[in-house]
Amino acid sequence: MTDTTGSRGADASVRARLGAQAWRRRGKRLRDRLPPILQASVGAALAWFIASDLLDHRLPFFAPVTAMICLGLTYGNRVRRVVELTVGVAIGVSVGDAFVAFFGVGVWQVAAVCFVAMSLAVLAGAGQLLMLQAGTQGVIVATLVTNEEQAFDRWIDALVGGLVALFITVALPAATPMRRPQEEASSVVGHLAAALGRCALGLREKDLDLVSGALEDARDLQPEMEDLQEIAAEGLAVARVAPFRRRHRPAVQVVDSLLFPLDLAIRNVRVLIRRAEVALSEGEVVPETYVEMLYELALAAQHIADELGEGRTAAEAREDLVNLARRSTWSVRDAGLSAEVMRAQVRSTVVDLLRLTGLSVEEATRRVPPTKADLDPGPRSESGS
């Protein structure tokens, strides 16, 4: 009889670890989202105060709703959202009020209001948000608002909410999106270096569990990369919109330019570690020089992470990467298939990391010699092919 106790325990351990990782990611996401959540909360309260207490509108619910939607949880396209919501509400209010005045309220009137308001929004060049707001406000006016004055007040409420959101976006942007991109980029590259180092150690000690753990670490980098992409986009949006944050734009743009090569590096490293796992599990030969390449790649990645954390470009890491690229041109005669795939992935990752140091893709590619014949370094102590 097969003993399933161990497998059940292993499954429970894996589920517990994945659950803990999920909660850590959620906690981190909440910390990242606290500034825009606070902005949306303050904006909603301020919009309600202006519409209710200063303009004396009865139940101006759409003022705080508009402020919250315009502020949202991201900084990108906030100004456009303000304009779209305001125009959408104007279209919806106008169409709804006209139908109530001429045709009253009923089933077919609600359908007609939706159809006409959304169609007009599309003709006005609306995006999905504007189109939906036009239809929504038309229905609200047709079913809840009974006179023209209230309909106009609802449009004013929407305008108040939009203006409050615009004021907060331009005058009071959170500082967090400006600081976070480089910090997050440094963290992602550091975790990439740690995964490479763990893989190299597992290969040297022939410890399959270590290599499998490194592969899980590499896979966990994907959600981190997605968070970094979002944070960088928010930082750029703040730098474009907020006058007092524009001095930070060059630093955020630098991180934005790193996103594509960093994503490629993560994907290449995942393939590399996967082949290391296969090599160990199937007993393939992985030459010691290949393991050394992984160590050196990990050290170079950590150097880049440290430089990014200090707000500098990692130009000093280029020499080490170029030297590693030169050594990676030699294959070892007895190396297994997986080992050769690893060597190829090292070369690809070197190109990606060189781009993180500020080189263009053309410059980075030129630094990685295609064959050993391009170097002619003389005899080597280890037999090659």
Results as ranks from 00 to 15, higher is better:
Arg247Leu: 12
His248Pro: 02
Arg249Asp: 03
Pro250Tyr: 03
Ala251Arg: 10
Val252Phe: 06
Gln253Thr: 06
Gln253His: 07
Val255Asp: 00
Asp256His: 04
Ser257Ala: 09
Ser257His: 12
Phe260Thr: 08
Pro261Gln: 10
Pro261Met: 09
Pro261Thr: 07
Asp263Glu: 15
Asp263Ala: 13
Leu264Arg: 02
Leu264His: 09
Ile266Asp: 00
Asn268Pro: 02
Asn268Asp: 15
Arg270Gly: 15
Arg270Lys: 02
Arg270Tyr: 14
Arg270Leu: 15
Leu272Cys: 07
Leu272Ala: 08
Ile273Leu: 09
Ile273Cys: 03
Ile273Trp: 00
Arg274Pro: 05
Arg275Lys: 11
Arg275Pro: 04
Arg275Leu: 09
Glu277Leu: 08
Glu277Ile: 02
Val278Gln: 05
Ala279Lys: 01
Ala279Trp: 01
Leu280Met: 10
Glu282Val: 06
Glu282Phe: 10
Gly283Arg: 07
Gly283Thr: 08
Gly283Cys: 12
Glu284Asn: 08
Val285Gly: 10
Val285Met: 11
Val286Cys: 01
Val286Phe: 12
Pro287Arg: 01
Pro287Gln: 03
Pro287Phe: 02
Thr289Gly: 06
Tyr290Val: 01
Tyr290Asp: 00
Tyr290Pro: 00
Glu292Cys: 11
Met293Trp: 08
Leu294Ala: 11
Tyr295Glu: 12
Tyr295Trp: 14
Glu296Gly: 13
Glu296Phe: 05
Leu297Tyr: 04
Leu297Ile: 10
Ala298Cys: 12
Ala298Lys: 00
Leu299Lys: 00
Leu299Trp: 08
Ala300Trp: 11
Ala301Met: 15
Gln302Asp: 12
Gln302Asn: 11
His303Cys: 12
His303Phe: 12
Ile304Cys: 04
Ile304Arg: 00
Ala305Pro: 06
Ala305Thr: 07
Asp306Val: 13
Asp306Met: 14
Asp306Leu: 15
Leu308Gln: 05
Gly309His: 12
Gly309Asp: 03
Glu310Lys: 09
Gly311Ile: 03
Arg312Ala: 06
Arg312Leu: 15
Thr313Tyr: 14
Thr313Ser: 13
Thr313Ile: 10
Ala314Ser: 15
Ala314Tyr: 06
Ala314Lys: 07
Ala315Met: 12
Glu316Ile: 05
Glu316Cys: 06
Glu316Thr: 09
Ala317Phe: 04
Arg318Val: 14
Asp320Met: 08
Asp320Arg: 04
Leu321Glu: 03
Val322Met: 13
Val322Ala: 11
Asn323Ala: 14
Asn323Leu: 14
Leu324Met: 12
Leu324Thr: 01
Leu324Asn: 02
Ala325Asn: 06
Ala325Trp: 01
Arg326Gly: 07
Arg327Met: 10
Arg327His: 13
Ser328Ala: 12
Ser328Phe: 01
Trp330Arg: 01
Ser331Trp: 11
Ser331Asn: 05
Ser331Val: 05
Ser331Gly: 08
Ser331His: 06
Ser331Cys: 09
Val332Trp: 13
Val332Arg: 04
Arg333Met: 14
Arg333Ala: 14
Arg333Glu: 14
Ala335Leu: 06
Ser338Arg: 00
Ser338Leu: 03
Ser338Phe: 01
Glu340Trp: 01
Met342Trp: 02
